[in-house]
Nucleic acid binder design. Structure first.
Length: 296
DNA sequence: CGTCTTTGACCCGCGC
DNA sequence: GCGCGGGTCAAAGACG
């Protein structure tokens, strides 16, 4: 099992058999939306500003790994049984991610130090570690959006941009501006559908969501609902799904060669019969810490 | 002035 | 070993 996101671009997959098909074929048969992606992102004290997506940016986001889809059966998923009902298949994140999950907070500082040593200092100093560069767990989203950089409640600094092979759209690299937080994210457009933005988060925030980003001050909590929760039932064209990076594995791709159909994004039927799921808990259950839900 | 973006150069891992 | 592509750095410029 390879860390697909780490070794190849989404575009590669879009252009080579569209493995996303499996991810987008949300034939959810389960009764829950077991995706606790924010937990996996390390957002533990999510406040309403998180995911205060830019209001003017129409969003339709999909996780590239539908936890409900029985079609996704990467070895990682099979091996990594969900620790909690709410996070079930999310642990389908790459095995590396799972390992990191185990290491998680405890090793975070260490990882950061390693990262600094390896990525930063090593530029001028000869790196001498026989360890492979450690990668954080990564989770990506497909988002139907006009803007590349979606507001998610955190502040990001763009530190790089690279042209992606087999894609006419560049990939942008962002880093959380909070000191001591080395969460990164990559943003790129789908090669097959330029209206789709693929955002890949790497690492876990070590801090609560900062103050409302300037551009999102307008909406705040309502944006959260609109984008991730209730809004998903009201406005089917606005939803977002996380997916485990591993979902892009060629393993998954081989299951269905048919092309990715972006129009599906508009159907608002991810986890199709589960519209009501979203009503009760739905994504909110997954993206909002349980204690927050309890408070409500 | 602080923050953010742009962009060319560099480093590293991997495949051939 | 070499080349390619992904990822990162950091200086310079833009912007409010």
């Amino acid at each position: 099992m390879e860390d697909v996101l780490g070794n190849s671009s989404f575009s590669d997959y879009f252009s080579t058999g569209f493995p996303l098909q499996s991810m987008l074929d949300f034939s959810c048969e389960g009764d829950t939306m077991p995706l606790g992606f924010m937990e996996l992102l390390g957002v533990q004290d999510l406040n309403p500003s998180v995911f205060g997506m830019t209001p003017q940016a129409p969003l339709v986001t999909q996780p590239l790994n539908n936890p409900c889809s029985p079609k996704i059966e990467s070895p990682a998923e099979i091996l990594n049984q969900p620790a909690t009902p709410n996070s079930s298949s999310i642990s389908s994140a790459s095995s590396e991610a799972v390992n990191d999950e185990h290491a998680k907070v405890g090793d975070q500082e260490e990882d950061q130090q390693k990262t600094k040593k390896n990525d930063g200092g090593s530029r001028l100093k000869p790196k001498k570690t026989n360890q492979k560069r450690q990668r954080e767990p990564r989770f990506a989203f497909m988002t139907k959006s006009e803007v590349d950089h979606l507001e998610d409640g955190y502040r990001w600094r763009k530190y790089g941009q690279k042209a992606v092979k087999n894609s006419s759209f560049p990939r942008s690299y962002y880093r959380c501006t909070t000191t001591s937080c080395n969460v990164k994210k990559r943003v790129e457009r789908s090669f097959s559908d330029p209206s789709i933005v693929i955002t890949t988060y790497e690492g876990q925030h070590t801090h609560p969501s900062p103050v409302m980003p300037r551009s999102s001050l307008v909406s705040g909590a309502s944006a959260v609902a609109t984008t991730f929760g209730m809004g998903m039932q009201r406005t089917p064209s606005h939803y977002q799904q996380p997916f485990a990076a591993d979902a892009l594995s060629p393993l998954n791709s081989g299951q269905n060669g048919s092309s990715f159909n972006p129009s599906f994004l508009h159907e608002g039927s991810f986890c199709s019969p589960g519209a009501s799921l979203l009503k009760d808990h739905g994504l909110l259950q997954d993206i909002v810490p349980s204690h927050m839900l309890k408070e409500e």
